[in-house]
Design a protein around this nucleic acid. Sequence first.
DNA 1: TATTGTTATACTCTATAACTATA
DNA 2: TATAGTTATAGAGTATAACAATA
Lengths: 148, 148
Amino acid sequence: MSSKAVTRADAGLASTLRVAVLRLRRRLVNEHAPDNDLSIGSMAVLGALAKGGEATIGELAAHERVQPPSMTRIVGCLADGGYVERRASDTDRRQVIVAITEKGRATLEADKRRREEWLARRLAALTPQERAILRAAAPVLEKLATSE
Amino acid sequence: MSSKAVTRADAGLASTLRVAVLRLRRRLVNEHAPDNDLSIGSMAVLGALAKGGEATIGELAAHERVQPPSMTRIVGCLADGGYVERRASDTDRRQVIVAITEKGRATLEADKRRREEWLARRLAALTPQERAILRAAAPVLEKLATSE
DNA sequence: TATTGTTATACTCTATAACTATA
DNA sequence: TATAGTTATAGAGTATAACAATA
C-alpha cells in the first residue's frame, strides 16, 4: 500500500469517525436523564474533580477544552447547587480553587449509572466482539480528543 | 467472568466512551474550518443527501436525529445558499422533497478534505495499530448512534 | 382526525470583548 | 505589564407549542 493510499484510507476513516462521533454525541445528549438538573458538561467537570482532585478554573477550562468564561459559568452553577466549593488560592489570590463536595461526589456516584444507562443498554445489545473493539478504541478516542 | 462483572466492565466502558465522544466532538467543532459558512450539521445533511439521494424533511430529521423544526431551519439555510432545492412531493403535497444541487455536491466534495484535515492529521500521528482499532470501531460507533 | 411541515418563541451552551483584581 | 477570572453580550443550535396545509 502506497503512502498515498494510506492517506486516502485515513481520509475515509476520518469521515466515518467524524459522522459517527457527531451522531453518537447527539444520542447521548438526547438520552440524557431529564430529571438530572446538571448538564452533561457539568457532570464532566464533577468527574474531573473527583478523579483529579482540586483544580483551578483555568485548569478545568483547559481540561474540558472550553474557554475560561464558560468554565466560570459551569462552576458557578455547580457551586450554586452545592456540588463544588470555591476558594482563593493561598499562593496566588487571583486563582480560584474548585473542590468537589460530599454532595457532588454522592451525586456523581448516584447519577453515574443512571446517566449511562442508555449507553450501557446499547452496549449490552452488541456482540462480545463489538464490545471488545470498543474497549480497545475508547483510549484511542480519548487520545485523539486530548492530543496536542 | 460473572455476568455481573461483565455488566460492571461495560459500565466502565460506557463511562469512558461517553467522555471520549463528548471531548472528541468538542475538538471537532472547535477545529471546524471557520471559512466554511456551513455548520457541521448542515454538512452532515448535505452528506446524507449526496449518499442517499432526495429525502423529505421528516426523513432527514429522523436520520440526523433532530426535531422537524430544526431540520426545517437547516434545510432553509442550505436552500438560501443554493446548496439544496426544495419541491413539493407529487404524491403528497404536504411533504417537501429536498435534493442536493450541483453547487451542494461540489461544496461537499471540496470541503470534505479540508473539514477532515484536523482529524486526518491526528489519525496520521497514531500508530498503525491504533488506526486499525479505530477502523474496526467506526462502524460499531455508527451502529450505536443509529440503534433503535 | 391524523400527519407534514412551518412559524414563533425560548432555552442551553459556548464564545469574544471588556473589565477587575492580583502578580 | 501580564495573568486569572468575571461580567456583559451575542451567536449557534436545538426544542416545544401552536398553527397551516394536506391526507
